[in-house]
Amino acid sequence: NNDALSPAIRRLLAEWNLDASAIKGTGVGGRLTREDVEKHLAKA
Score class of each variant (00 low, 15 high):
1 N>T: 13
2 N>V: 14
2 N>A: 14
2 N>Q: 14
2 N>D: 14
3 D>V: 10
4 A>M: 13
5 L>E: 06
5 L>Q: 08
5 L>I: 13
5 L>D: 06
5 L>A: 06
6 S>H: 09
6 S>T: 12
6 S>V: 05
6 S>Y: 04
7 P>G: 08
7 P>L: 11
7 P>T: 10
8 A>W: 09
8 A>I: 09
8 A>Q: 10
9 I>N: 00
9 I>H: 01
9 I>R: 00
10 R>V: 14
10 R>D: 12
10 R>C: 13
11 R>H: 14
11 R>G: 09
11 R>L: 15
12 L>Q: 04
12 L>F: 06
12 L>W: 05
12 L>T: 01
12 L>Y: 04
13 L>Q: 01
13 L>E: 01
13 L>V: 05
14 A>N: 09
15 E>Y: 15
17 N>I: 03
17 N>K: 10
17 N>T: 04
17 N>F: 06
18 L>E: 03
18 L>M: 06
18 L>S: 01
18 L>F: 03
18 L>P: 01
19 D>C: 05
19 D>M: 08
20 A>G: 07
21 S>V: 08
21 S>L: 08
21 S>Y: 07
22 A>F: 08
22 A>N: 11
22 A>D: 14
22 A>M: 14
22 A>E: 14
24 K>N: 10
25 G>Q: 03
25 G>W: 04
25 G>H: 07
25 G>K: 05
25 G>M: 03
26 T>H: 04
26 T>M: 03
26 T>G: 03
26 T>W: 03
27 G>N: 02
28 V>D: 12
28 V>C: 06
28 V>F: 12
29 G>E: 06
30 G>K: 03
30 G>F: 01
31 R>Q: 13
31 R>L: 12
32 L>G: 01
32 L>W: 03
32 L>H: 01
33 T>E: 04
33 T>H: 00
33 T>A: 01
33 T>I: 05
34 R>A: 12
34 R>P: 08
34 R>L: 15
34 R>V: 15
35 E>A: 12
35 E>G: 08
35 E>Y: 08
35 E>L: 10
35 E>S: 09
35 E>I: 07
35 E>V: 10
36 D>A: 01
36 D>S: 01
37 V>S: 00
37 V>E: 00
37 V>N: 01
37 V>L: 10
37 V>Q: 00
38 E>P: 00
38 E>N: 06
38 E>K: 08
38 E>H: 09
38 E>I: 14
38 E>T: 07
39 K>D: 09
39 K>V: 07
39 K>P: 01
39 K>I: 11
40 H>E: 07
40 H>C: 04
40 H>G: 02
41 L>I: 15
41 L>F: 07
41 L>E: 01
41 L>T: 03
41 L>A: 07
43 K>G: 11
43 K>S: 14
43 K>F: 13
43 K>D: 13
43 K>R: 10
43 K>H: 12
44 A>G: 11
44 A>V: 15
44 A>I: 15
